[in-house]
C-alpha cells in the first residue's frame, strides 16, 4: 500500500464518479421505464450501444461531438418510441415476462444489425478537441473529458428532475407510475404517456452510450457489459426508484474505481459482492418498494 497518497485516492474517487455517472444515466432510464410500464427493458444496453454508434456515424458524416450530444438522444429516443409503439405495446397486460423476452430478443437483433453495418471489431472514438487534456482539480490533474461526463450527467439529472417535479406531464408520470387507472379516469391517455416515457428512457440510454464512447471506444457488445452492471445498480438502488438509481450508480462507480486501485483482481467481483450485501441487509434496495415484482 506504500505510495498511495490521499491525493491519489481522491483522484480515484473522481474517476469513480465519472464511471458512476454513466451507470446513473443508464439506470435512471431503466428505472423510469420499469417504474412506469413495469417493463424490464433488456434491450436497454442495446439502445446504449446504438447511441454510441449513432455518434460514430454522425462523426463519419463529418458532424462534430456537439451535434451528437443533441442528435443522438433524439434519434435513439425516436427509435425507442417506435419499438414501444409497434412491439412492446402489444404485450401489455400479459405479465412481466413477455416484454422481458421481447426486449431480450430485440437486443440480439440490434447488436447483430450493428455488426452487419459497422463490422464486428470496434472503433476508437476521439475525445472532442475542446475536452482533451487534464485540469488541476486541487488534488491533482484530472481528465477534462471525465469532468465533462460528470457535468453532463448532472445537467441531465437536473433537467429530468425539473421535468418530473415542475411540469404537468411530470405530474402525470409520477401519478401514473403509482396508479395508472386513476390517471386514465382523470382523462389521460396513458398509452401516450408510456410511449413518451419509453422514449425518454431510451434517449438517456443513447446519451449515456455516446458519453461512454470516448472513454472506452465503441464495440457492438458494449451494451451487454453495462446491462449486467446496471442490473446491480438497480438492485442496490431499488427497482423503479430514480433517486435509488442515482445513489447506487455513483456508489457502484466508486466501488469499481476504488477496488481497481486497491485490489485490481477484485474489481469485477466487487460490485456483485456489494449487491449480495445489499440483498442480505435490505432486499428491496435503498429506495425500493418491497414486493414490487410479486
Amino acid at each position: 500500500m506504500a505510495g498511495l497518497s490521499l491525493d491519489l485516492i481522491a483522484l480515484q474517487l473522481f474517476a469513480g464518479l465519472a464511471l458512476g455517472a454513466i451507470y446513473v444515466l443508464f439506470a435512471i432510464g431503466l428505472s423510469l421505464i420499469f417504474g412506469m410500464l413495469t417493463v424490464v427493458n433488456f434491450a436497454h444496453g442495446a439502445f446504449y450501444m446504438v447511441g454510441a454508434y449513432a455518434g460514430l456515424y454522425i462523426l463519419m458524416l463529418g458532424g462534430n461531438f456537439w451535434i451528437c450530444l443533441l442528435a443522438v438522444p433524439l434519434a435513439v429516443g425516436l427509435f425507442g418510441m417506435l419499438v414501444e409503439r409497434f412491439l412492446i405495446r402489444r404485450l401489455y397486460g400479459r405479465g412481466i415476462d413477455y416484454p422481458l423476452l421481447l426486449t431480450f430478443g430485440l437486443s440480439y437483433v440490434m447488436v447483430e444489425l450493428v455488426r452487419l453495418a459497422f463490422g464486428k471489431t470496434g472503433y476508437p472514438f476521439d475525445t472532442p478537441d475542446l475536452l482533451q487534456g487534464a485540469v488541476n482539480i486541487g488534488v491533482g490533474y484530472f481528465p477534462l473529458y471525465r469532468l465533462f461526463v460528470i457535468g453532463a450527467t448532472a445537467a441531465v439529472l437536473l433537467g429530468l428532475w425539473l421535468f418530473l417535479e415542475k411540469t404537468s406531464f411530470g405530474l402525470i408520470i409520477r401519478a401514473g407510475a403509482r396508479d395508472p387507472q386513476i390517471v386514465r379516469v382523470l382523462g389521460v391517455d396513458i398509452s401516450n404517456v408510456w410511449l413518451i416515457v419509453f422514449g425518454i428512457g431510451t434517449a438517456i440510454a443513447g446519451f449515456a452510450g455516446l458519453l461512454a464512447a470516448p472513454l472506452q471506444g465503441v464495440i457492438p457488445e458494449m451494451g451487454s457489459t453495462i446491462l449486467a452492471e446496471a442490473f446491480v445498480v438497480t438492485v442496490v438502488g431499488g427497482m423503479g426508484s430514480i433517486g435509488g438509481a442515482v445513489l447506487a450508480g455513483l456508489l457502484v462507480g466508486i466501488v469499481v474505481s476504488m477496488s481497481s486501485l486497491f485490489a485490481p483482481e477484485m474489481a469485477k467481483v466487487s460490485i456483485f459482492a456489494l449487491m449480495a450485501i445489499v440483498l442480505i441487509v435490505r432486499p428491496q434496495g435503498f429506495f425500493g418498494r418491497a414486493g414490487l415484482m410479486s
Binding site: S168, L171, I172, A175, L186, G187, V188
Partner: peptide, 9 residues
Amino acid sequence: ENLRLGLVA
C-alpha cells in the same frame, strides 16, 4: 398535486 391531477387533461 392531486388536485392538479384532476385538471391535467
